[in-house]
Design a binder for these strands. Sequence first.
DNA 1: CATTTGCCTACTGTGTCAATAGGCAAATAA
DNA 2: TTATTTGCCTATTGACACAGTAGGCAAATG
Lengths: 132, 132
Amino acid sequence: MISTKGRYAIRVMLDLAEHDTGTYIPLKDIAGRQEISKKYLEIIVKEMVAGGLVTGASGKGGGYKLCRKPGEYTIGEILELMEGPLNSVVCLTDKQYNCPRSKTCQTLPLWQEYDQMVHDFFYSKKLTDLIT
Amino acid sequence: MISTKGRYAIRVMLDLAEHDTGTYIPLKDIAGRQEISKKYLEIIVKEMVAGGLVTGASGKGGGYKLCRKPGEYTIGEILELMEGPLNSVVCLTDKQYNCPRSKTCQTLPLWQEYDQMVHDFFYSKKLTDLIT
DNA sequence: CATTTGCCTACTGTGTCAATAGGCAAATAA
DNA sequence: TTATTTGCCTATTGACACAGTAGGCAAATG
């Protein structure tokens, strides 16, 4: 299940893309338009800044804006930043796990094929693809 | 993330398919081969019985066996029984949710397309496809 | 009748999700 | 300079799911 973090992050990105004026956009405005608690969005946007998706500026006239052009973001990178690795099973997420059954596991190839499909899907979608 | 319930269920099904002797197979044997706690497997197999995947028999000579031929099971139905609906977002799982934004939501089509892909993937895989 | 095997209820520790709350720091407009 | 706007920081919370563990009862067979 994709959590609110990932879903809200995409909506914030879309909001920023559609209301781009060259200046910073206050989080209050985004929260209002998207009908999401501003306080909760703060947590999410903080991670987006840390991940290099957006930049923030404090003080009057401050807010957030995209770092790149909307077409240069993939949905995959946004989701992966917010949700962690897009893997279906622990065996493939945690390299340290080193499952002793991996050599003979009959189900591992299934998860690998699935993960590959999911990865390809989300990384082939650009942010601009969602703007109608 | 697919939880252990779903993953273990598939492994139990595979184990039953590969060790089919026409008789019931004790859970102890499955737990031993799969290296999974028998106590935990009890919980999982109970749900599999309730869902019509396998049948159980008590007493000496008892155990579990498949209800149908291995080729008549899809991975999708096993996963959906154990994990619940294979949906990416709450908006699509919970009909009662009835999101007020659904009409104009820019991200909903993405989740719908994704869910369709995931559904098709898992329901096109049969249990026998995992047996090499 | 003893052993095997499934079936039932209950409990538990750990972690994540989805927020909320309150205050501090920075930057600008008046 | 000062008031206002806005982002940034730490802490806390309630609900819930995950991944089991524990103990005992019931049924069936050799």
